[in-house]
Amino acid sequence: MIPWNTKPLYQVRQWELREVSKDCFISYQQNKYSVPYRYAGQQVKVHETNEGMLELYDEYERIAVHPLLDGRHQMTMNSEHYQGLPGTKKEQDKNLHGLATPDSPTPIPTVESRSLAIYAALEEGE
């Protein structure tokens, strides 16, 4: 006979709903866990696994997984949850659409410079 009190024979899932804050965290048992930025302001489903992990789901798929934190008032953050967030350096670099920058391997082309007086003269009809 196998003892019954060691581990559940099947995974017991108790689902809870949490709202994702503006800073992309949910609160669970007085700890904070990061969520991908696109879910800010939305509700997500949360549950603990038998392996000591916290899984977060939207309506269809798992969007994040974190190890459960011991204690209270702690925080765990996955930096990938903030990649592509509007206003971040990565997002600004992405918006250049292939333009050369001082940091890019593509050399910056030289551009002819001329006096603005030439444009003023053209505007006056000279």
Rank of each mutant, 00 (worst) to 15 (best):
P3Y: 06
K90I: 14
S79K: 10
Q42P: 00
K7H: 09
A117P: 00
M1N: 06
N78W: 11
E126M: 07
D58A: 02
V44R: 02
E91F: 14
E123N: 13
L99C: 12
P3F: 05
T76M: 07
I108Y: 05
V65L: 14
L54D: 05
V65A: 14
R18N: 04
A120G: 08
I26N: 03
K22T: 05
L122Y: 12
N95K: 13
E123C: 11
Q74Y: 03
M53E: 10
S21V: 08
G41C: 05
E16Q: 05
K7E: 09
N78Q: 10
E126K: 09
T88A: 07
V46E: 00
S104A: 09
Y33P: 00
R13P: 06
K32E: 09
E59S: 09
E123L: 15
K7R: 13
H66I: 04
A64V: 03
Y60C: 10
P67C: 10
A117E: 12
Y82H: 08
N31D: 04
N50K: 12
Y60E: 14
S104G: 08
V35E: 00
A120V: 15
G52C: 01
A120S: 12
E124L: 14
D103R: 12
G71Q: 00
Y33D: 01
S34H: 02
K32W: 11
I63E: 01
I108V: 15
C24M: 07
P36T: 10
G87M: 09
K89N: 04
S21L: 02
Y28G: 01
Y60T: 15
P105C: 03
R62W: 00
R18H: 02
K90N: 12
Y119Q: 07
Y57T: 15
V35F: 02
A121Y: 14
S79D: 03
K45C: 10
G84V: 13
E80T: 15
K7M: 10
P102A: 06
L56S: 02
C24F: 10
E112F: 14
I108F: 06
Y119H: 08
P102F: 05
Q29F: 09
Q14P: 04
Q30D: 10
P36V: 10
L99A: 12
N5V: 13
A64P: 05
S113W: 07
E19N: 07
G98E: 04
T88C: 08
R62P: 00
V65M: 15
P67E: 11
D58M: 03
Y28S: 01
L69G: 01
G98V: 13
V44E: 00
M77V: 14
A117F: 11
D70T: 12
H97K: 12
V46A: 01
